[in-house]
Simulated assay, not measured.
Amino acid sequence: MQEGSLDLALTWDGKRIVAATVASNRPQVASLLRRLPAAAVSERVLQLFGICRQAQAAAAALCVRSARGERLTPGALDELALPVALETISEHLCHLLIAWPTLLADPLRPPRVADCGDWRRRLRAASDRRSAAAVAADLARWLGEAELPSPGEESPHIAAAPLLPVLPAAEWERMALLADFALLPTRAGEVAETGALARQVGDAAITRLLAAGRRFAARLLARRLELCWLAAALADPPRLSALLDASPVRAGVGLARVETARGTLLHRLELAGDGVAHYLIVAPTEWNFHPQGAFVREISGFPAASQRAARFAAERLALSLDPCVPCSCRLVDA
C-alpha cells in the first residue's frame, strides 16, 4: 500500500525560518485491521508495513496475546524481541552509513553503501541466538573503530521538545483513550521527542552535548550508544526484553509497546469475540512530526541566510528525527 508522506512548509523571512507547519497524508493503517480475525492480525501487519515491519508485527502479536489473557513468558518475549533488535541495528546502520553522508555530501566521507549492505545481509541471516551473537561480536569490534558523521554547525538556542521517557505498556492506557491520540499524541498535555536520544539521555556524554546545545550531535551519538547496547544484548538475549512489553488492559483489550529505531511504537487492540473491533497504532513519526512537536519547535527561529540554507536546515533536522515516510520541504515567503 502507499506509505504516504510529510509536507514540511517553512516560512522564511530572508534571515531565519520564522515558522513551520507539518502536513501528513499517511494512511491510517489501523483501520485496515478492523474486523479481521485476531489470528490474522500479525500476518496482515507484516504485509502492510515496509519500514519497522518486525517491530510492528511484534507489537501486533503482543496486543493479541495480551487481549486474549495469554501469559507472556520470558521465552516468548525473547522470541519477539530478537527480530526487533536485528531490525533496529539495521535501521541505525543505514542511518549512519548512508542517510547522513548522503545529506552532507562530503566527498571525503561518501556514503558507505557496500558496508551497510554487508551488515544488513548478515543481520537478515541471523535467525537464532547463536548466529545473532556472532554478528554482535563483530559489530561490537567494528563500533570501537567506526567514525560517526559530523552533523555540521548547530544553533545552540533552539526551542527543543521534551524527551519522551520509556514507559511500560500499562502506563499508556489512560493516554491511549484520549481523543485524537493516534494522530496527535501528547503526554500530560505536552508534545515530546521520541527515539534513541530519549532512550540514551542518561549517558554523561549525551548530557554534555545537550547542555552545549548540540542536539544533532547528541542524536547521532545516541544511535551509536544504542548500537553498542544492542550488540551486547544480542549476546545476552534476556536483556532484549527491555525493547517491548504488553499490558492486558481488561478481557479482550491489549496494549503493547515496542522500542524501534525511530522511537516508541504503541499498538492497542479491542476484540469482539475473536475479531478486531478497534485498533490503534501510534508510530514515532506522530510524536516527532506533531504539528507542535520536535521538528516544528526546533526549526522555528533557526537562522538561515539563504533559501538553500533554510532548506538544508529543515532536511537535516527531519533526517535527525528520522520519519518513517518520505518528506518534502518547501519555502513560503514571510
Rank of each mutant, 00 (worst) to 15 (best):
S300E: 08
Q307Y: 01
C329I: 14
T88Q: 07
A251C: 06
A205W: 05
S31G: 01
L123D: 05
G252M: 08
L269V: 12
R65S: 11
R26G: 01
R208T: 14
S241F: 01
P101Q: 14
A204E: 15
S131I: 07
M175H: 12
R214G: 09
G293Q: 06
G195W: 10
R112Q: 15
A272T: 13
G50P: 02
V191Q: 01
V22K: 08
G213D: 13
P111K: 12
A314H: 06
A169I: 12
G263L: 07
E153A: 14
L167K: 03
S155V: 08
A305Q: 08
A235E: 14
S328K: 12
L48V: 10
V22E: 11
D13E: 10
A105W: 12
T11F: 05
P284C: 07
L280A: 06
M175D: 06
R257P: 05
C116D: 14
W12F: 07
S155C: 06
E171D: 15
H92S: 06
S247P: 00
R257N: 13
C329M: 09
V276C: 01
R239P: 00
F49E: 04
L148M: 12
L6P: 02
P165V: 10
L271S: 02
L82P: 01
S5F: 05
R224H: 11
L77C: 01
A140I: 12
I89Y: 04
I17S: 00
E3I: 11
C63V: 02
V296R: 09
T194E: 12
T285W: 12
Q2W: 02
A334K: 11
G252N: 02
L243R: 06
R68F: 09
P238A: 09
A161G: 00
A126N: 07
D274P: 00
A99N: 12
L77R: 06
A211G: 05
A23I: 10
D333C: 07
I89G: 00
P238M: 11
G4Q: 03
H157D: 15
S241W: 01
E315C: 05
L265F: 02
C327M: 13
V84F: 00
A137K: 13
A176P: 01
H290C: 05
D203S: 09
A146W: 11
L32C: 05
M175S: 09
L244A: 00
L46Y: 06
L62N: 04
A136W: 14
R224M: 03
V41C: 02
V332S: 01
A314D: 09
L240W: 08
G254T: 02
D245K: 08
G14H: 00
L178A: 05
L178M: 10
R35G: 00
E3V: 10
I158F: 04
F295S: 03
A99T: 13
L164I: 05
R297W: 06
E286D: 04
R224S: 03
V296F: 03
A211R: 15
D274C: 00
L220M: 05
A105Y: 03
L177R: 15
P162R: 13
R124E: 15
A256D: 02
L317W: 06
E315M: 09
C116P: 02
G293M: 11
P291T: 10
P291R: 14
T21D: 13
H290G: 04
E270I: 04
G69R: 13
A188N: 10
L62I: 12
R187K: 04
F181A: 03
